[in-house]
């Protein structure tokens, strides 16, 4: 029962609005966990607090034994957290391979002089990085698209490329912000398979945000439900499906159908 990430009383405000309110969440090592909740519940804000995009006003976030709240994003990435974005944010005029190469940035060390002199170390490092990038692209099924400029790729391919880029920094914890948004049921199923494979083959802990209850119930081992910035429930998929507060939060917003169909699944 190793905890890799622990959020303690995390609070983030925007002016008068409390986007995340005293949130406590523990994530077990090598688990697949999910944060769900209606629109505007503060899920993405919570992600942004973990990755350093925002710095929470109160509370602490402990990753792998170290406090990380308020550190800058590049430092946090180096400690082993990586993420994808709700609205895909690739380096759009760079090729797929280059996107993944950028992802490996924390693990490369050659500086200005090494690059200009093209030292032996530089060449070895670049060759290794390129091989690693090809391997990652193959893993996400984009081998043949390596030289395509990211903005010319299809939506699904862009999502997968974003994952390859996130994995390139060799994270211990991968945060996925709505990985199946805009996908049809087949693609969603593929993505689920893929996420399981990630955890299984690479031993990465995965925390995801989802709207789609079917995705969440299908793959996560632990679910936290947020509403109005607060955690209203936590537990296994079964617990969550039967939790009256969750049903209320969703029913209250007229999103019951999602829950119903998830049960029937």
């Amino acid at each position: 029962m190793d905890t890799i990430l622990r959020a303690k009383e995390v609070t983030k405000r925007f002016g008068g609005l409390v986007a995340v309110n005293k949130l406590n969440i523990d994530i077990r090592k090598e688990s697949i966990s999910a944060v769900i909740g209606p629109n505007g519940a503060g899920k993405t804000t919570f992600f942004n607090c973990i990755t350093g995009f925002y710095s929470p006003e109160e509370g602490s976030i402990i990753f792998d034994g170290n406090e990380i709240q308020g550190l800058s994003t590049d430092v946090i990435t180096r400690t082993g957290i990586s993420r994808t974005y709700q609205n895909i944010r690739l380096f759009s005029s760079m090729t797929a391979l280059e996107n993944v190469l950028v992802g490996q940035h924390p693990h490369l060390t050659t500086g200005w002089l090494g690059a200009v002199a093209r030292t032996g170390k530089f060449r070895r490092e670049e060759a290794d990085a390129l091989e690693e990038a090809r391997r990652l692209l193959k893993f996400v099924g984009l081998s043949s698209l390596g030289n395509q400029v990211a903005r010319n790729m299809s939506y699904g391919a862009q999502r997968r490329l974003e994952m390859a880029r996130a994995m390139a920094s060799r994270p211990k914890l991968l945060l996925l912000d709505e990985p199946t948004a805009g996908m049809n049921p087949n693609e969603t199923e593929e993505m689920n398979e893929f996420i399981r494979k990630l955890r299984g083959e690479m031993g990465i802990t995965i925390l995801l945000i989802e709207h789609d209850m079917r995705v969440v119930m299908g793959i996560s081992e632990q679910i936290s439900v947020m509403d109005f910035g607060e955690k209203i429930a936590e537990g296994t998929p079964q617990d969550i499906q039967n939790n009256p507060r969750v049903i209320e939060a969703y029913l209250g917003r007229g999103a019951a159908s999602g829950l119903e169909s998830a049960k029937a699944h």
């Binding site: 990755t51 350093g52 995009f53 800058s72 994003t73 590049d74 990435t77 180096r78 990586s82 993420r83 974005y85 944010r89 690739l90 380096f91 759009s92 005029s93 760079m94 280059e98 190469l101 950028v102 992802g103 940035h105 924390p106 880029r165 920094s169």
Partner: peptide
């Protein structure tokens, strides 16, 4: 590559370490 990544999206580049 870091320069170009920064040019494309500064925040994401920072989040790449």
């Amino acid at each position: 590559r870091s320069w170009m990544a920064m040019r494309e999206d500064e925040d994401v580049a920072e989040a790449m370490g």
